[in-house]
Design a protein around this nucleic acid. Structure first.
Length: 485
RNA sequence: GGCGCGUUGACGGAACGGUUACGUGGAGGUCUGCAAAACCUUUUAAAUGGGUUCGACUCCCAUACGUGCCUCCA
C-alpha cells in the first residue's frame, strides 16, 4: 500500500506524492518554551515522529525543521498582549533569555527520553530575526502590510482565500466576537507581523525595527524597538531553510483557524507559491475527560509520570494506542494498561535470547509469521498512520509466538521483526531487553536440574533468587523460559 | 450567538454495510510438584428516536449529552 495521508487542505485522505522524488521536506510546529511541556504537547510530537519513521520506511530522505518559539507568543488572558516568555521571566525572576534557554533544554531532553527522531533543523525564533524582517519587507513591498500604533499588521483582505483553509466564516465571527479587538485594525482577522515595544517599556527580547519597514515614524522616536509576531517565525524558518514550497506541515488542530491560516496567508502572499502541499493535524489529548489547562493543574509533565513510576516509553505506547486524529483521553489507569502491554511485548522480545535460528536457512516471508507481519505493520502505518492497527497486528503475532514452544520460534526472524518495530514505532524493544548474565543463566540451569531430581525445595529457593534478580521463570514442556518481572 | 467535532463493552480503542478487532482489568477453567506464563470461556458493545437497505455499530435525518474553536489560548 502506498502512503496515504489525511490532508487538512483538501479534507481528504489522499496518496502522498512529494515535490521531489525520494525526498520530503517537513515542518513541524514546535513548542513555546515558557514552561514544561505536558502530556498533551508531547502527544503531537510522538505522532509526528511516527510520520517521520513512516516516511523513512517508504524510502524517503526526510529533511525536517522544527521551531522553538522563544519570543513573540503572546498571552490572551487578563494581561493581554504580554509575551509568554517575558511573563515567565517575571514569574521566575529571570530574564526571558534564561527562561527560553532553560525550557528549550528541557524540551530537547524530553525528545531524547521519548526516543523521538531529532529533526535535522531545530531552530529558535530569535536566531531568525533577520529572515523574519526580510519576510515583512517582502510583504510590505507587495502591499500586504499596514502600520498602526502598536505594530505592523498583515491585511488579510488582500489575501482573498484567507478563510478557505479553516473554512472560516469571517462575517459570522465578527458578529459573535466576545473580545473587543484592536479598533485600529482594518479587519478583525488581521494579525501582527511585527510589534513595537510599548513606550516606557523595556523588554528582555527586542530588536531595532529597520526604518524601511516603517510607513511613518513612531511617536517621533529615532529608534523603534520591536519583536516578531508569533506567526511570522514559522513561515520565515520554513521558507528560508526548506524553500518556498514544502511537502508537509504538521501541528495541533488548534492551529488550523489562526496560526496555520496566518502562516499560509503571509507565506503565499510573499512567495506567490503554494506554501505546503500537505497539512496534517493531531487532535488534542484530554485528561480525565476534560481539556488540559493550567488552571485545572492537569497538564502532567514527563516528570509527573516518572514520579508515579511510568517511563517515557510507557507513555509513547499509550499515545500509539489511539489514532492521531482521535481525541485521546489520558488517565493513569489507561497509562497503566499501556505499560502492561509494553512489558508484555518486552517479554516476547526476550525470547530472542532463548530461541535458536536453526530454521533460518531458506526462510521466506510465507514461512515465518514474524516476517509476514512486517509488511502488515507498514501497511497499517501507510494507511494514514494507523498506529492502533499496527499494534493490533503485532499483538497477534506476539500471541502466536508465545503460544508455541521455543523451538518453533526462529530467533533470526524475531530479531528482524523487533528491529522493524523499533524503527517504525520507536519503542526500543531491543535496547530495553538485554540478555541475562551468565550467573543468572547458571541459576536457571541449576533449578532445572533440581526439578529433574524432584528436589522442589531447592528449585523453589532458586526461583526466589531469580525473582530477586528481576527474573521470573516459567516451565514449559520443552524447558524453562525466563521473563522480566 | 457563529462554526465544527465527538458519543463503541469495566477502562482504553480500531476496522468494516453482512465474519471474534485488539489491548488492559475482573471471574471461571485447562495445564503445572507448586507457581508463572500461555491457552479456553466469560465479563449483556455500539447515546436515543426515526429513515435508507434483503441486512447498519458502519450511510441519512432529528434529539440528548459531551467537547473544541471564534483574531494572537498546544
Amino acid at each position: 500500500m502506498t502512503l496515504q495521508l489525511h490532508n487538512t487542505l483538501t479534507r481528504k485522505t489522499e496518496p502522498f506524492t512529494p515535490i521531489q522524488e525520494g525526498k520530503v521536506t517537513l515542518y513541524t510546529c514546535g513548542p513555546t518554551v515558557y514552561d514544561f511541556p505536558h502530556v498533551g504537547n508531547w502527544a503531537g510530537y510522538i505522532y509526528w515522529d511516527i510520520l517521520v519513521r513512516t516516511l523513512i520506511s517508504n524510502g524517503y530522505n526526510v529533511e525536517r525543521v522544527m521551531n522553538i518559539t522563544d519570543v513573540g507568543h503572546l498571552v490572551s488572558d487578563a494581561d493581554e498582549g504580554e509575551d509568554k516568555l517575558e511573563k515567565g521571566a517575571r514569574r521566575e525572576g529571570k530574564s526571558a533569555w534564561d527562561i527560553a534557554e532553560f525550557y528549550a533544554e528541557d524540551f530537547l531532553a524530553g525528545i531524547e527520553k521519548l526516543g523521538l527522531i531529532v529533526p535535522e533543523h531545530i531552530v529558535r525564533a530569535t536566531e531568525f530575526i533577520p529572515q523574519q524582517l526580510d519576510l515583512v519587507r517582502t510583504l510590505k513591498q507587495k502591499g500586504f502590510t499596514y502600520q498602526i500604533d502598536d505594530g505592523i499588521y498583515f491585511d488579510t483582505s488582500k489575501f482573498p482565500t484567507y478563510a478557505d483553509f479553516a473554512e472560516l466564516d469571517l462575517e459570522a465571527q465578527k458578529a459573535g466576537a466576545r473580545v473587543a479587538f484592536n479598533a485600529e485594525k482594518r479587519n478583525p482577522s488581521d494579525f501582527a507581523l511585527w510589534k513595537f515595544t510599548p513606550k516606557n517599556e523595556k523588554r528582555d527580547m527586542e530588536w531595532e525595527t529597520p526604518t524601511d519597514l516603517l510607513d511613518e515614524p513612531v511617536s517621533g522616536e529615532a529608534k523603534v524597538m520591536g519583536f516578531p509576531g508569533w506567526h511570522l517565525e514559522c513561515s520565515a524558518m520554513a521558507m528560508s531553510i526548506l524553500g518556498d514550497t514544502i511537502d508537509i506541515h504538521t501541528g495541533g488542530i488548534d492551529h488550523i483557524p489562526v496560526h496555520h491560516t496566518n502562516e499560509i496567508a503571509q507565506s503565499e502572499s510573499a512567495s506567490g507559491q503554494i506554501f505546503s502541499h500537505y497539512w496534517l493535524h493531531n487532535n488534542h489529548l484530554k485528561v480525565n475527560g476534560t481539556k488540559i489547562s493550567k488552571s485545572l493543574g492537569n497538564g502532567f509533565t514527563l516528570q509527573n509520570l516518572a514520579d508515579r513510576g511510568f517511563s517515557p516509553l510507557d507513555y509513547r505506547m499509550f499515545i500509539l494506542q489511539s489514532h492521531y486524529s482521535n481525541e485521546g483521553n489520558f488517565t493513569f489507569e489507561n497509562l497503566a494498561a499501556a505499560r502492561n502491554r509494553l512489558n508484555h511485548w518486552r517479554n516476547v522480545a526476550a525470547l530472542r535470547h532463548q530461541a535458536h535460528d536453526t530454521l533460518a536457512q531458506n526462510k521466506t516471508k510465507e514461512d515465518d509469521p514474524s516476517l509476514a507481519v512486517i509488511g502488515l505493520i507498514k501497511t497499517a502505518l501507510n494507511d494514514n498512520l494507523n498506529s492502533p492497527e499496527a499494534l493490533r497486528v503485532i499483538d497477534e503475532v506476539f500471541s502466536h509466538l508465545e503460544s508455541h514452544n521455543l523451538d518453533r520460534i526462529d530467533s533470526h526472524a524475531l530479531n528482524q521483526l523487533l528491529e522493524t518495530i523499533d524503527q517504525l514505532l520507536g519503542l526500543q524493544l531491543i535496547a530495553t531487553t538485554p540478555d541475562i548474565d551468565d550467573e543468572t543463566k547458571q541459576l536457571i540451569i541449576q533449578r532445572e536440574r533440581a526439578r529433574e531430581e524432584k528436589n522442589w525445595q531447592t528449585s523453589d529457593e532458586l526461583r526466589d533468587r531469580l525473582t530477586a534478580k528481576g527474573i521470573a521463570v516459567r516451565d514449559t514442556q520443552d524447558g524453562t523460559v525466563w521473563e522480566y518481572v
